[in-house]
Amino acid sequence: MKNGFLFLGQLFFIWLIYAFSKYIVETFHIPIPSSVLGIIILYIMLTCKVIQVRFIEKGAAFLNKHLGFFFIPIAVGLMNYGELIKTHGLQLLLMIGFSTIIGLVITAGTTQYLTKKQENSTGRDKTYHGQSHSA
């Protein structure tokens, strides 16, 4: 029972940070999404030890695990595009698919190449494979 309330309290706290970010973004017309500002605020609070990570850990892990769920009802909105899919679907899918692959390979390839170069030049072995913080 106590754990259940604690868990809900953690979710509420995270929601509160989001609501605050949303208020700031809307009031001051900041050109970034509320959720991105929320990430920055929570990150700073954790780094500056305003709150301990264990205080929100369970709630955050739950939300992380089920983040995909929240996108499903939005993705169902594609059902409104039946007509467009019939007329331009193939071309659009080709464009989105190829552009996503190009962007993905260039982004990750550049990063991996530079990371290896950096590791070689410092001469330290820094492999983080398998480093896990799962609770």
């Binding site: 979710l11 959720s35 990430i39 990570v53 992380n64 089920h66 983040l67």
Partner: peptide, 23 residues
């Protein structure tokens, strides 16, 4: 129904700060 279910999308995104902090 979508609006009910996506109520926590923003907060769930904010919660990504935790793995970022840990790493």
């Amino acid at each position: 129904a979508k609006d009910w279910m996506t109520f926590m999308l923003g907060p769930a995104t904010v919660a990504l700060a935790v793995p970022m902090y840990k790493n």
